[in-house]
Design a protein around this nucleic acid. Sequence first.
DNA 1: AAGAGATGTTTCATGACCTGAAACAACCAT
DNA 2: ATGGTTGTTTCAGGTCATGAAACATCTCTT
Lengths: 151, 151
Amino acid sequence: MGTLVGMASTRTDPLTLEVVDLIGTVVARYHEEYELAAAQHSLTGAQARVLGLLALEPLPMRRIAVSLRCEPSNVTGIVDRLEARGLVERRPDPADRRVKLAVPTDEGRATARRLRESLEFAREPLAGLSVAERTLLRDLLRRMLGEPVAP
Amino acid sequence: MGTLVGMASTRTDPLTLEVVDLIGTVVARYHEEYELAAAQHSLTGAQARVLGLLALEPLPMRRIAVSLRCEPSNVTGIVDRLEARGLVERRPDPADRRVKLAVPTDEGRATARRLRESLEFAREPLAGLSVAERTLLRDLLRRMLGEPVAP
DNA sequence: AAGAGATGTTTCATGACCTGAAACAACCAT
DNA sequence: ATGGTTGTTTCAGGTCATGAAACATCTCTT
């Protein structure tokens, strides 16, 4: 993993620090816009994330917790609040009477769709980059995340 | 901004969606590691952010709130908890008796330094990129954020 | 110099999120 | 059938966050 001779310590060289800083800025802006978009639909960030998940596929509580990386007891409250607004409902799982499936209502699906659209629009800063640049960015991010570059 | 003819709508083309997704992954990982590093020092994320700010420079409550983009009344509680742990203390501002400066104690500064080190270490995925690649990534991120590329 | 308005901090009420422990029902393996 | 495991909820306790109100202090205007 990198030669020792001439290694400017990836921890401290100015270039790396600047990239880390830029990523910090991206992270901050991403979060701001996400919370803002959620708030425009009278949702909190957590509620928006759960609704977004369920719009793809109804899920048992347990799996929501895994996706959110939090305790199942926490999910109970979030789904409670979504249910109180009529965006989600709990259905028994016919295959296992212990589990409850959280499934979005029609209104929940519509809200999720609008949310997704405003989010995509909010993330538009990529528009300033050409296709070649976006491809480059994609490959660099993939490598950074340890994913294979070739599809 | 971009020709209309042949424009694949930056909102929906697969490349852009993938980049957006990758950025989402980066954001998630960044946050996880930040919270984890904070927790290893028995701090919450908010407390770690404030302590990190104060380690650079003592600040009045109001300015902490601006940095965190939250209400000043919220900062009171966070600094209360840092103060209760002996990491920060409030000092009167000689120039204006209304304001209270939050200044880290020696222990607070030491904690901030250790935190910063573990954070930098946690952000090490950049090590997999060459200098040329990091430079490229820096420029792309700058452009994406609407910053000038040339220093 | 005095009063009026602005500013900085705190307190309080309220609510969302989050965890960990405990309860409960239902599953599954022996 | 019994015992252990798993999925969900409830509860207590803590942090973060907002907005309104109180309070002290500053600053501007006259």
